[in-house]
Design a protein around this nucleic acid. Structure first.
Lengths: 178, 178
DNA sequence: CCGAGCTAGTTCAATGTTCAAGAATTGGCC
DNA sequence: GGCCAATTCTTGAACATTGAACTAGCTCGG
């Protein structure tokens, strides 16, 4: 019989050949809680940044990466890898940010295929203006609610999860390189 | 001085008036790890489900909610609340799922404004076929890698995060009701 | 029973994302 | 050098999401 389909079923029987191991009741509850939290948080940050900075969270993340890079510029592929997005998505995103005047493309000196995305002064200003609100939002939703021990746990758990999805640091044939 | 702009800066000085409390080095590392993990996981599940079931993760989630509901149907607003998405997004999603023949709309008997989304038999079959692969993917990325203690911790942490973003169970003027 | 305000759901236009295809360049290998 | 495969980035079309405006129906106080 199904209990709480489709995550757990047939809990009392040994897994048939071809049947996956369904989630236990606790795993299921945790998974839903995880989905719940990540969805709400991402939506909330997107809305906050759209309102205060005129861009979605991912785009903000791109500006952050650029701001931290030496000379505030990065090769497209490098940036895509850092941000864990496809190069296609990055192309579109940079096009938009360029139209806003927050990023500038320039040719890569040594590789004529390459492009550098450079954060402009205006882009930096926008980022500087948006950062306090963003950090506050992150704090309020996460770090101010968790104990130091829980913060440590969250770091360890997400480290493990990320590792399983992107084995060590290898860039080898990962989807975002397509 | 900036250390690792823009998440932490001025760590050694007391917060100026108007300055937010920046993230500590550890909080920052945890936050990046969190973003990293959640991005990779969501992308991975989206790709897995797109490949195996022809729909993104969110749409799959909608089918799951419907499958679990009494008589496999839910009011649109109810479904939107459950799935934590806006009604607009849901309208589009159901339109697409309806075109696929996986969901059917029907008028609500007692409220003529209302619509029920009903999972069709075909939709149920698609779900049944996709579920094993999905559960396996979730297991491989999360539950098979974490200790029972970590699973418990993750549940508690995400519960707290979700709570802060959607205070108790109230449906009061939340963004997805717009 | 009537009107103001609320609720349910949809639609439109603008924006963002994906996937597959394509153009330009590079690098290894003979 | 010259060829083939791989790398870099872009493009365009299809699809998904957002936010605001809109229609229709409900509700409740007077």
């Amino acid at each position: 019989m199904f209990k709480n389909w489709p995550y757990d079923r047939c809990m009392t029987t040994a897994p048939n050949p071809g049947e996956p191991r369904w989630l236990t009741a606790e795993e299921q509850a945790v998974w839903r809680s995880y989905l719940h939290a990540t969805t709400l948080l991402e939506d909330s940050l997107d809305r906050q940044l759209q309102r205060d900075a005129g861009m979605p969270h991912v785009y903000y993340g791109l500006l952050v990466k650029l701001a931290e890079a030496p000379r505030r510029r990065l090769r497209m592929t490098e940036l895509a890898k850092d941000a864990k997005i496809t190069r296609s998505r990055l192309s579109h995103a940079i096009a938009r940010l360029e139209k806003n005047g927050w990023v500038r493309r320039e040719d890569c000196p040594n590789d004529r295929r390459g492009q550098n995305a450079c954060l402009t002064d205006r882009g930096f200003e926008v980022l500087k203006k948006a950062a306090p609100g963003h950090v506050t939002a992150v704090r309020q939703a996460v770090f101010d609610r968790l104990s130091p021990e829980q913060v440590r746990q969250l770091g360890e758990i997400t480290r493990i999860m990320a590792e399983s999805l992107q084995p060590d640091g290898t860039d080898a044939d990962l989807p975002w390189l397509r």
